[in-house]
Every structure is written in structure tokens, then in C-alpha cells.
Write a protein that binds this DNA or RNA. Structure first.
Lengths: 210, 210
DNA sequence: AGAACAGTGTAGACGGCAGAAACATTACCA
DNA sequence: TGGTAATGTTTCTGCCGTCTACACTGTTCT
């Protein structure tokens, strides 16, 4: 935990603030994220964070970017570890996305809450997500050419899949699944069913004639 | 707009506050919703709302409940207007859900933002959504018995569909779709594609032998 | 070595917010 | 007509974001 680092003023306040911010979001939720609380946890005065972030928004944005980095990295790793055919790799990416969201709910909430940042703009983020979608589309096209995914506009298919996955993890992270279903369903079983539904919908309507 | 109603103190402050709250959410977003701003718009002191709502949360909750009522009503109407077979009625409900969310983004955001209310609990809402899911499940079962929906646990199917729809409208309402795709896709076309994808995934794998 | 300087943290102030308490006004009812 | 409950206002506390003026620390130049 932040080891031995009290060099001169603080050492690495910026990182400490990001860490504290994530902790606050985990414990209290994003609405409880205040500059003052974060500063308190980092053990500095309430104005110190302004040396590193011009704004509350910029602090949050930094956490968001950190989250995107971590997610992208995780997905890349999982994809690389999957068998070397497009459909399996695509499935691995999807599973990795969902697992990231479920394992790091604080990150996912900040990244996609929509109410946290005042402006949804922020070009760098737009670029990141646009790229991610493009990769997804390319992957789907590849699967189509192999005949393992039904034909259709891959952009539309990607958006539908993204909707499903994002919707699922949002419902879970906002704690709405528990109220919806009765006892005997575990989160993992629902997750697997949702992912299965995606791939059922993606499969060609007629099984391969072979 | 609010007609002639300045009876005694205010007339119907409670309604005026709900109306103002919704307006604020539309214009500034849910994070800008403050008791004081709402009171200002209703032309009363900042403490007046506390006569009608014990809490900021309770005000928001009232808007949420109003939203659920309106949505349920809309869906019921559309469902009744659809042809009298289960699959068409199911499709009509789904379309109505999406359209409600797209036409009343402010309501939808408050209803499902997750960050707005401190507690996700609120039994009445849990009850409402649980009931809604049950109805969905029943509808799916009916379709299965007619052979127009593939077999499988209808609860899981319902959750997958709900995920897709909720995910789609969340992405749209948080303004993320625009950054993702390039020009030539209209929102309606994406909406239709997403809905189509749901029903493709729901269709029996082998077309009816007839 | 010593002085200037930039980077970093602090102290205090301002206005806005949620919420509680005490007070004022109005509608209604006996 | 007078009493009472409902409704709205004022005022206060404490937290928040952000700004400004100041203090400390490490570096760099002479």
C-alpha cells in the first residue's frame, strides 16, 4: 500500500489521488467523489489536488482513462491467450469485457456512468472507443467470411452485441439484476446465458451443410 | 403550461416541483438536479420542497415513479394496439420500451441512472420491475409453446433481451453511439437493427417445417 | 556558497448546496 | 370568530468546488 514514499512534499500525489479516487468510488459510489474527500485520503490539503488537475472533471477523466487502459490491456491479454480462430478470439474478448466490468465495477461505473462528467465529449475517449468498435467490426467481418457468423452489416451486429454486453454489466453494476430474478440464478450463470444468447443470435441460421 | 393556478400558497407545489425537476434533468442533466434549483424554478424558497419531500432522494424517487407509470402505460397501449398474437405483442412491447426511452431521455435517465439515488433499494420499484420481468417471461413462454421462439430458460432469454434493450438506450442517452459509428447510420436504423438482432436470436434455429 | 526560480502544498475566502429549526402565513373547520 | 394544521420563509450549520495569496522545497545559475 503506497510503500515507503514520503520524499519531499508528497512524492507522487497525482497517483495517490487517482488511487484514492477509485477507492472512494468503490466504497461510497461515484456521487460521493469529492476533491476534498480524495485530498483527505491522500493526506493533503483540500486545494492540493488543483496542482495536478485543473478541475474535478479532469481528475475523474484521468481515472476514466486509467480504466480504459486497464480494460484494453486485459482484453488484449485474454484474446492472445484464446485459440487462434476468429470466433474464439471474439468470444474471449467479449468474456474479458464482461469480466473486467464485473471485477472492476468502480472503474466501469466511472467509465460509463454518463452522469459523472459534465461533458461527454473528450476527444481522446471518443477516439479510443471508436477504435475499439472498429476492431470489433473487423473481427465480425472475419468471422462472416469464415461462415461462422451470419451475414449482415457487421457494424450493426457490433452495436447490438455492445448493447447487450453494456446493458448486462450496467444492470449488474447498478444492482438491478438481484431484484429482478428469484433465488436460484447465480451471476455467473446469467452472464454465461447472456453471452450464449449473443452467439446464438450470431450463428448462421442454417448450420453448416458439411 | 401550468395554466392558471395560484390559489393560495402555491396551489400545487408538489406537481410543479416534479415538473421542474424533469425540466432540469432535461436541460442540465441529472447531476445538476438540486433542490434549490428546482425550488427556484417553481418560484418558492429553497426550503419549501421539504414540505412535500422529506429528502432530495424522495423527490427524485417521485420522478422515477412517475416515469415508470408513464412507461408502463405507453407500453400497455402499444401492446393493446398490436396484432393479437404473442410474438407481435412482445415485439410491440419491446419497441414501445425503446421508443419511450428515446423520446423521454430525461425520464429514462432518472429511472435507470444508478448514481442518482443513494440507495438502489426502494421496495416499490423493485416490485414494479420484478413484475415487468415476470410478464416478459410469461410472454416468452407463450411464444415458445407456439414454436415461434426457440426453447431455453425464458428467464435467461428475458434477461438477455432486457440487457440488449437497456444497453442500447443507455448508449444512446449517454450520447455514445454518435462517437462510435460514422455518418450514414441513423438512430432509427440502428434501433431497428438492434431489435431485429434480438428477434433473430430468439427465432428457432430451424425454421418451422411447415 | 548563495540567490533566483519553478514546482508543489497550505490557509483562507466565496458562493452554492442539503438539510434542520424556528418562525410566519394562509386555508379551513368548529 | 377563533383555533389548528398545512404550507412557505428565514436562518443556521456543515460540506462542497474553486480562487487567491502565501510557504516550503529542490534545482539551477552565478
Amino acid at each position: 500500500m503506497t510503500a515507503a514514499k514520503e520524499k519531499y512534499h508528497h512524492g507522487d500525489l497525482r497517483s495517490a489521488l487517482l488511487e484514492a479516487a477509485l477507492a472512494v468510488i468503490s466504497e461510497i459510489g461515484p456521487q460521493g467523489l469529492s476533491i476534498r474527500e480524495v485530498a483527505r485520503r491522500a493526506g493533503v490539503s483540500h486545494a492540493a489536488p488543483y496542482r495536478h488537475f485543473t478541475d474535478r472533471d479532469e481528475l475523474i477523466l484521468a481515472v476514466v482513462e486509467q480504466g480504459f487502459d486497464l480494460m484494453q490491456q486485459t482484453m488484449q491479454t485474454e484474446k492472445a491467450a484464446a485459440p487462434d480462430d476468429p470466433l474464439n478470439q471474439f468470444a474471449a474478448s467479449g468474456l474479458a469485457y464482461v469480466n473486467f466490468a464485473l471485477q472492476h465495477p468502480a472503474y466501469y461505473r466511472v467509465m460509463f456512468s454518463g452522469d459523472l462528467l459534465s461533458s461527454t465529449g473528450h476527444l481522446s475517449l471518443q477516439h479510443t472507443s471508436h477504435e475499439a468498435l472498429q476492431e470489433m467490426v473487423a473481427n465480425i467481418s472475419e468471422c462472416q467470411q469464415l461462415g461462422v457468423v451470419r451475414s449482415g452489416d457487421p457494424v450493426m451486429q457490433a452495436l447490438a452485441i455492445l448493447s447487450t454486453i453494456h446493458g448486462f454489466v450496467s444492470l449488474v453494476n447498478d444492482n438491478r439484476i438481484g431484484h429482478l430474478v428469484d433465488q436460484p440464478y447465480s451471476l455467473e450463470s446469467i452472464r454465461d446465458a447472456v453471452l450464449a444468447a449473443i452467439f446464438e443470435g450470431l450463428a448462421p441460421p442454417q448450420p453448416l451443410p458439411a
